[in-house]
Amino acid sequence: MPLVMDADRISRTLMRIAHEILERNRGVEELAFVGIRTRGVPLAKRLAAKIAEIGAHPIPVGALDITLYRDDLMRHAVGPQPLVRSTEIPFSIDDKKILLVDDVLYTGRTIRAALDALIDFGRPQSIQLVVLVDRGHRELPIKADYVGKNLPTSRQQSVQARLVETDGRDEVVVEDSERGS
């Protein structure tokens, strides 16, 4: 179970992404984070905190649940269904520059669903994608704007990002195991 990123590495990576976000977006007034549940939400909160640390404006953070927008609802055999959780976006996304945050970018289907879901909330000026890990194997024409780490993997492997807020510790590991997630 090779460790790809430890807590320190994750923290420095997020700081680097925070700087990149500020560099590429003049004026932070129109920026807003939307984290994809589950682990995109704490990542978005940490990025917002880092940007506040650097001394820029506080940036609002929302949470998006994409379960109801998935394209595989009826395709699974009997198995656990993901629990639908609430979407909480406590600000208008109209004309905002949305920074969509997720932990691992893989097939791109989650992001496709998230884009559909976001657009039901309004018409943002733009949407940029932030991911902690890009593991390749895209099935849709989707590309991240900010990548914490590019991680070449095979489809048989599974990549797990764990965060203190959800899993009790910060780490990214690659597991040679069953089907990938």
Binding site: T67, L68, S86, T87, D116, F121
Partner: peptide
Amino acid sequence: LETADAMKEIGTRPIKKVPT
């Protein structure tokens, strides 16, 4: 009951519809 919590939020959106 827990799933209904998430469904209730959809009723508060400007576009009260999901493609599920």
